[in-house]
């Protein structure tokens, strides 16, 4: 039986206006996120992964706008929802955490006040709110929560701030958490702690997470399924095992070959060139100018995201020719 997806994005387009030019940051993105699934959006900077994530709760910067497509959350279209309904969805249904917690926490009030703000709409007494806040802090592993509630964000370390952000995002018990590069600003040992925390919370609260990251290592550790984005489009979607062991898009393979996974002396194979300028019209496949496999068809006809194997989608005309290559072959050629 097919499970009903929690979130279903269809042909989402978010455009920005920059210097009187239209920048197609998100250009026809479609994907589903199932219940209690961790779904990864990976790609290099400027590929539209953050813009996609922000579009999902309609928090696109003022120069941008969702110009088309639909975002079905439990069957309800978020793109069309009135602003009043959106205010209810944000936080209560879909929570969000960001890369740099110092920029998103209010420096002028204590963590406790910011956390308890979430409970104010539930008409609880002060004592009940404090109790709930302490419980939340304990859940995300902040030691000594009763005293820490009275601390300001600057008194927290980087890792603790990210934990506090997670506590605030989860206080209203959202069913979906959007995590935009949650560990990028942290040291590896702290990153490891936050990864473990998010994985544990997913189990406990059975929520779904959309993880935006540029780090293939983090994505492979956390995600059930991964979408690889490039130039505002999705290039490939599949389970994380499939993506690493059986990639079906030259861009995904290019990313893996760029990583120093093999030993010394094995030369890296970087993807030549640079990503396209999104303010210009792209004909054909956006990756074609950098792709070693590109043929005439790739330069003229934009490949649709299609199922090349059950559950494995790829937007490449020549996906079938890519078999038997994986990150392991990149790792083992010595």
């Amino acid at each position: 039986m097919m499970r009903e997806p929690l979130l279903s994005v269809r042909e989402l387009r978010t455009y920005f206006l920059n210097n009187k030019k239209i920048v197609r940051a998100v250009d026809g993105v479609s994907f589903d996120v199932n219940k209690s699934e961790i779904f990864g959006l990976v790609g290099e900077s400027g590929c539209g992964k953050s813009a996609t994530c922000r579009s999902l709760i309609r928090l696109v910067q003022s120069t941008g706008e969702i110009v088309g497509g639909e975002i079905l959350y439990n069957g309800e279209d978020i793109v069309q929802a009135p602003e009043k309904r959106m205010a209810e969805i944000r936080g209560r249904e879909i929570g969000m955490i960001f890369q740099e917690p110092m920029n998103t926490l209010n420096p002028l009030t204590t963590i406790g006040v910011q956390l308890m703000e979430v409970y104010q709409r539930q008409k609880l007494s002060k004592a009940e709110m404090t109790e709930k806040a302490v419980e939340m802090m304990r859940l995300v592993g902040i030691p000594d929560p009763v005293t820490r509630l009275k601390d300001y964000p600057h008194q927290f370390s980087g890792g603790m701030r990210q934990r506090a952000m997670i506590a605030i995002a989860l206080a209203a018990q959202p069913k979906l958490l959007l995590a935009d590069e949650p560990t990028t600003a942290l040291d590896v040992t702290i990153q490891d702690q936050i990864i473990r925390l998010l994985l544990e919370l997913r189990e406990k609260l059975s929520m779904s997470i959309i993880l935006v990251t540029h780090d293939m290592g983090v994505a492979s550790r956390m995600c059930d399924r991964i979408a690889v984005m490039y130039a505002g489009r999705i290039m490939e979607i599949t389970t994380s095992h499939e993506l690493f062991y059986n990639p079906r898009h030259p861009y995904t393979l290019g990313l893996m070959r760029s990583m120093p996974l093999a030993g010394k002396g094995v030369r890296l194979e970087p993807i030549q060139g640079t990503p396209p300028d999104l303010s210009e019209e792209i004909t054909g496949c956006p990756f074609a100018p950098r792709c070693k496999m590109a043929c005439d068809r790739c330069r003229t006809e934009s490949p649709a995201l299609r199922e090349v194997e059950p559950g494995h989608l790829s937007a490449c005309h020549r996906a079938e020719e890519l078999t038997g290559e994986s990150f392991l072959t990149c790792k083992e050629v010595q």
Binding site: V188, S220, M256, L261
Partner: peptide, 25 residues
């Protein structure tokens, strides 16, 4: 040892090991 284990390996089948480092620098 901890630093090497904490760095997420690019391997979808790895669970990161049982090793957890507590606290911060």
């Amino acid at each position: 040892d901890i630093l090497l284990k904490a760095a997420p390996e690019v391997d979808p089948d790895s669970d990161g090991g049982e090793y957890v480092i507590h606290g911060e620098t």
